[in-house]
Amino acid sequence: MSRQIGDVILNVQNISLSFGGVKALSDISFDVREHEIRAIIGPNGAGKSSMLNCINGVYTPQQGSITFRGQTFSHMDSHQVAVMGVARTFQNLALFKGMSVLDNIMTGRNLRMKSNLLLQAIRFGPAEREEIEHRRKVEEIIDFLEIQAYRKTPVGQLPYGLQKRVDLGRALALEPQVLLLDEPMAGMNVEEKQDMCRFILDVNDEFGTTVVLIEHDMSVVMDISDRVVVLDYGKKIGDGTPDEVRNNPEVISAYLGTGH
C-alpha cells in the first residue's frame, strides 16, 4: 500500500442529538485519520445515518463539537462543509433524476466554476476553457467508475447499482478530502458490492481520499476498513481495528443478541 495514514483530520467530540424525546445519539466521540477508511457500523436504528448527517450539517447536534482540520464547530452548515472539502453520498439515492449522468457529475464541479455567467452562456474565451477543463475531470471520473456507456442517459433510467456509482461520481467531482458514504452497498447483489468495494479502495488508494463509511453489513466492512466504530441505540459500544471489534463481547451481543 502506497498510502500512509496521517494525523487526525476529523474529530467528533461528545455529540448528542435527540428528536423530541428520542435520543438518536448520546455522547459519541471518535476521530478519523487522514487517508484512512473509517467505518461506522451498527444494527438498524443505531444512529449511524444521524451521525453522518451531523458531520454533514444536515442535523444540528444539541451537544458536542466537530473539529475538522484544526477548526472546531458546534454545528456544521451543509454548504460550508462542501466548501471545506467534505462530500457525501446518500443512502436513498438523491440524484438529479431528470439530468444525464454527465450533467449530474458536472454539478459536483459547480463550486469550482469561476467564470462569468454571460461568458458561459455564449461559451466564450476563458469560460469555454474552464468548461473543457471541468469536463475533462468529469470524464476521468466516468472512466474511473466504468460508466462510459451511460454518459448521456438520464440517471432515472439507470439500474440501481449504476445510480449508486453516479452518486459516488458526483461526490468525487468535488475532489473531496473526506468522503462520507451512507450505506454505499445497501440493496446491492454480491457482484455489485464487490465492484463498489473496489471503487472505494481505489479512491482511497489513488487519490488518498479519507473515507468515512456507514454500513450495517459487517462482513463487507471488516475487509476494507482500517478502523471501525460500532454504535448501538445511539451509544458507542466499540472502536478499534476490525479484529478488535469482532472480538468485542458487547458488539457480538448487539449483533447476535445476548444468550439467555
Binding site: 446518500f90 440524484l95 438529479f96 433524476k97 431528470g98 454539478t107 459547480n110 463550486l111 461526490a171 468535488l174
Partner: peptide, 16 residues
C-alpha cells in the same frame, strides 16, 4: 436544475 430535483443533494455538493 439540480436544486429543483433534490434540495438536500444539491446542498451536499455545495450549491447554495
Amino acid at each position: 436544475r439540480a436544486v429543483a430535483d433534490d434540495h438536500q443533494a444539491a446542498q451536499s455538493i455545495g450549491i447554495p
